[in-house]
Nucleic acid binder design. Structure first.
Lengths: 358, 358
DNA sequence: TTTAGCAGTCATGAGTCAGGAGTGCCAAGT
DNA sequence: ACTTGGCACTCCTGACTCATGACTGCTAAA
């Protein structure tokens, strides 16, 4: 078992790939991604003109297998890429793609009509990406900690209950009900809100946990009970809940030949529904620079060695706040999905930047 | 194809069931639900002491089949219940169950720690029910129309943008951003909020669509542009979005022998992910009095004739606002799931009632 | 009306077999 | 030193057969 997240080296003494081997490996990956069938030497010579005979290919393939780049499901079958084979392909061999103009347009259009509620954007994005990727898409939503405090408004609901609405830099409104034993008016709460805003405006949500709310409430002339209630409302809004993960596109898994086996399918579906594992899987990726791929065992989880995940962090105001991920079988069109993930993340960044300027 | 939602009559001239036939039918349903295997005459005489020989059972079973209550997958197999067989079982034969005290406790405990956010409650409920039912659970969330307006607060965010937070009787806060060209202060917005609250307090959300917001804003001394912005914020908060449907427990489907077939599984998963069909499926049930069952073809959709759905409406303040549903194969423990649905709905009702009193 | 017995049906799983795709290796060719 | 044609070998796949067993319907006797 390799260390979590470490790309798998082909083998301890992996021979460097000469140009022909590299081309053969790349072609095998390409063909296998397209057909889902182990690739044989004849197929290769027939469909791609390599200029050499199938026997030569066979020799090369045997060496690639010895080097750890290919595996053979059984003796009389063709070869399929190993994790290391895919890794080499992704890192050094594949032609990076960019989004087709139709797809780029589709994404732009989608965000043009986007709701301005963060939850809506998250859900819309996973749906869109799941559909375009024909795979499972999921996202880690911005944790509250990364957002900054913009505004709080205490709303008078009844004699002894109120609602605290806290607006963050991403335009998210967090709501917390609170109860207290003091009798206050709506005006009191407004006055108090103004005080809190003046005191804490611009802080990050993280800092908000350490802030002396009680003192401010008291200074505004209110009693301890209300102070405690408001403080706890503050804290519970500032506290990061379990990171929200939306997912979409599970039905595409059923189309993949590798998941015709119900046992495999079940374990994947369970992981998706549980969310926790999903989160752990991609949480690291939040510090990546752009689209990144984790292949099979690199995911560090024995349950989903059949899968690969493309992740891309998305930013808001120069700070990375979340991750968009596409999960599918290892046999996935890496270049395309990386382009899709990258493009979507960019659109998302732009959307957030615009929403900040407002 | 029968009319949507109409229980299927056994056959045009369904013979009435004498006591023995009724018992045999009930036993077959019971056995089939437990084993998922077609039930033969010998199994019946061996496992349940019917006091007659298997030959007699065979005769009775042949008559039950002629009456439309049973079907035979193939000539040399046992019998399984037809939709009509299940229907008769549910309506007249089965012993109603009630929740085991552990389960009742489990549900109560779950809600004791329930968050007060509506979304959280919905999600928590589907998760709980999906798990206890070992089937798919989903819910139609309260449509906004059924809630009443309790409070609005316009929050000043920047010179020309604001956030309208609208609190409903269920304690839900709906947020809408708005933009305008007038220069207003936070105080202005507070003043305006108070006006709006005074004017519209207590109205149902449905009525809010027809309300003369513009006039009120103008009467408060603000310009047309702000009036229009506030009105549109009002409307978009009041407008029912697509009803939110949370679902949970899809992985249980994989355990059911009837969904080992990938084609069937795919179509079910698609329906669950689409949500729209799911909504149509149970929307009618909002007017039911208690737990209700739809069996196979009764669902009115050709795609899920393999499924049954147990639904129960849940109330808030004497008005039915949503539906809780459990979906699974027709071969489901109806009595148990109806008890589970009913019990959960009751706890939910109580939770809402309490939240109103606060 | 019930029951025992019996012939008939049919899904299921094991076993067999031919076909074919693909390999590895060797020896000859360039 | 590569490359290539050829050939023997492996092993998956799908079709086919066949015995087994679960179950039925029917008949005739109780």
């Amino acid at each position: 078992m390799t260390a979590k997240g470490k790309p798998v080296a082909a083998t301890p003494l992996a021979p460097p790939l000469d140009q022909r081997k590299a081309f053969i490996l790349a072609t095998i990956v390409y063909e296998y991604v397209a057909t889902a069938e182990p690739v044989g030497s004849q197929t290769l010579t027939q469909k791609y003109n390599l200029g050499v005979s199938s026997a030569t290919i066979r020799n090369e393939m045997a060496e690639l297998e010895a080097g750890g780049y290919l595996v053979q499901p059984h003796t009389s079958a063709g070869r399929i890429p190993s994790d290391a084979g895919y890794r080499t392909y992704v890192d050094r061999l594949m032609q990076p793609e960019s989004l087709s103009s139709e797809e780029a347009k589709r994404i732009r259009d989608e965000y043009r009509a986007a709701s301005r509620e963060l939850d809506g954007v998250i859900e819309q994005t996973t749906r869109l990406v799941g559909e375009l990727a024909h795979n499972v898409a999921f996202m880690i939503a911005p944790s509250r900690e990364t957002q900054t405090f913009r505004h709080i408004q205490l709303i008078w609901l009844a004699e002894r209950t109120g609602l605290a609405v806290l607006v963050t830099s991403l335009g998210v409104a967090l709501q917390t009900h609170f109860e207290h034993s003091e009798s206050v008016t709506a005006d009191d709460l407004t006055r108090l809100s103004n005080r809190l805003n003046a005191s804490f405006g611009g802080r990050t949500m993280r800092e908000l946990g350490d802030v002396e709310v009680i003192a401010v409430v008291r200074a505004a002339g209110f009693g301890d009970d209300l102070a405690r209630a408001v403080e706890s409302a503050f804290r519970s809004a500032a506290r990061s809940p379990e990171p929200i993960v939306a997912s979409s596109g599970t039905q595409h898994l059923l189309d993949q030949p590798e998941f015709q086996d119900l046992r495999k399918l079940r374990s994947i579906l369970r992981i998706i529904e549980e969310q926790k594992t999903l989160y752990d899987l991609v949480a690291d990726s939040i510090n990546d620079a752009g689209p990144t791929v984790r292949i099979g065992h690199e995911l560090g989880s024995d349950e989903i060695t059949e899968c690969s995940v493309v992740t891309v962090p998305y930013r808001f105001s120069d700070q990375t706040v979340g991750v968009l991920a596409i999960m599918g079988p290892r046999r996935m069109p890496y270049a395309r999905l990386m382009a899709l993930a990258g493009g979507t993340a960019q659109s998302l960044n732009k959307l957030f930047d615009e929403s900040e300027r407002r």
